[in-house]
Amino acid sequence: MKKTNPLYHSSSSTLANQARTMATVKTDTTATEPKSESITLRVKDQTGEETMFKVKKTTKMEKVFASYAGRKGVNVDSLRFLLDGQRIEKHQTSAELELEDEDQIDVMLEQLGGC
């Protein structure tokens, strides 16, 4: 995961916005359901960096996870996606999660500890 300067991100969220990147998750259903409502999700990592995903409400979150992990170059198994502190399951969709436009998803890295 990209390490960012803490000073840079500690000031405000507007600065963090500059780090936003846009991405659209393509779905198989594009052709069959062109009118399906799509929303933008903000995936925010531990450093405050946000990645935007445009997804359909019927899209399984699995796709978002895989896409995010691919962009960051990490194993999806080592990422934990949270909505309001609750884990999101792979097979859930935005509709099931009652996600709305511009909603934020937190992504955390696997945590270990022993000593």
Partner: peptide
Amino acid sequence: SKLLDDNN
């Protein structure tokens, strides 16, 4: 980890 971020 979120409340007391290492960075922020």
